[in-house]
Amino acid sequence: MSKIDTIIFDLGGVLIDWNPEYVFLDVFNNDKEKTKWFLDHICTSDWNENQDAGYPIAQATKDRIALFPEYEKEIKLFYGRWPDMLGGAIEGTVDILKKCIASNDYKVVALTNWSTETFPIALKRFEFLQWFEGILVSGEEKTRKPFKDIYTLTLKRFNINAQNAVFIDDNLRNIEAAKALGIHGIHFETPEKLRQQLKTFNIHL
C-alpha cells in the first residue's frame, strides 16, 4: 500500500452530531413512529441533499409545501429550526483529528455535504473546523457526494494523490464512490473503531 500522506474527514456524523430527529421528536411530542414517517416521506434525506448540492433553501421549502400543503408548518421548521438539529461535537473523533494535525505527518482536509446557507452556523459553533488545511463544502460547489466530480475537485483543489489519501465518512455509499477513484476509504462507525481502522493504514495516534 502507498504511504498515506492525506486524511480527508467527512463532518456530519463523523465529527459533528447532526440529526433532524432532535427537532421533530419535539414537534411530534416524542412520537418516534410519526417522526420517522415524516422524515421518510415529507422532509426526506434526498430532499435535504438537494440543498446540500446548492439548491436554495427558501425555494426548496416552497416546493415541498406545494407538494404537502397540510404539513406547511412542519416543513418550515426543517430549516427554521435547523440549528437545533446540531448536537455537539463527536469528541472522540475531534481528538483523533487533533492528533492527526499535531503529528505534522498528514495533510488534513474535510469534504462535506452541507448547504452553503447553513454551514456558517457550524463554523461559528465548532472551533475545530478552523483546524483544517481546507474544507470543500458541497453547497458552494453545486454538487455533492457521491458524485464523481466532487471527489476529483477535492483531489485537484488540495493537490492530493488519490492513492496516498484515506477518506473517512459515515455513509458507505460515499466511501464506495471514493474507492472507485482510487482513494482509500474508512466507513466510520465509532471513534474507537476509527482508531483501529487507521492503524491498518499505518496511522497510529
Score class of each variant (00 low, 15 high):
Met1Ile: 04
Ser2Leu: 07
Lys3Gln: 10
Lys3Gly: 10
Asp5Val: 07
Asp5Ser: 12
Thr6Tyr: 03
Ile7His: 00
Ile7Tyr: 00
Ile7Val: 15
Ile8Ala: 03
Ile8Trp: 04
Asp10Gln: 05
Leu15Ser: 12
Asp17Met: 08
Asn19Met: 09
Tyr22Ala: 13
Val23His: 00
Val23Thr: 14
Leu25Asn: 13
Asn30Lys: 10
Lys32Asp: 14
Glu33Ser: 11
Lys34Tyr: 02
Lys36Gly: 12
Phe38His: 04
Asp40Asn: 15
Cys43Met: 10
Ser45Ile: 09
Asn48Arg: 10
Ala53Trp: 05
Gly54Trp: 12
Pro56His: 12
Ile57Tyr: 04
Ala58Pro: 00
Gln59His: 06
Gln59Trp: 03
Gln59Lys: 13
Ile65Lys: 09
Ala66Met: 08
Phe68Ser: 08
Tyr71Ala: 14
Tyr71Pro: 14
Lys73Asp: 15
Lys73His: 14
Glu74Thr: 10
Ile75His: 01
Leu77Trp: 00
Gly80Ala: 10
Trp82Pro: 06
Asp84Trp: 05
Met85Val: 05
Gly87Pro: 09
Ala89Lys: 07
Thr93Gln: 02
Val94Asn: 07
Asp95Trp: 00
Asp95Phe: 01
Lys99Ser: 10
Lys99Cys: 04
Ile101Ser: 04
Ala102Met: 07
Ser103Ala: 13
Ser103Arg: 02
Asn104Thr: 03
Asp105Arg: 12
Tyr106Trp: 11
Lys107Phe: 08
Asn113Cys: 09
Thr116Arg: 10
Glu117Cys: 04
Glu117Thr: 08
Thr118Met: 12
Ala122Thr: 03
Arg125Asn: 03
Arg125Phe: 00
Arg125Cys: 00
Glu127Val: 02
Glu127Asp: 15
Phe128Asp: 11
Leu129Pro: 12
Phe132Thr: 07
Gly134Met: 01
Gly139Cys: 11
Arg144Thr: 08
Arg144Leu: 12
Pro146His: 02
Asp149Ile: 14
Ile150Met: 08
Tyr151Cys: 11
Thr152Ala: 06
Arg157Ile: 04
Asn159Thr: 06
Asn171Lys: 08
Leu172Asn: 01
Leu172Trp: 00
Arg173Gly: 07
Glu176Trp: 01
Ala177Phe: 04
Ala177Glu: 02
Lys179Trp: 00
Ala180Arg: 09
Leu181Ser: 09
Gly185Met: 09
Phe188Val: 09
Arg195Asn: 13
Arg195Met: 13
Gln196Ile: 15
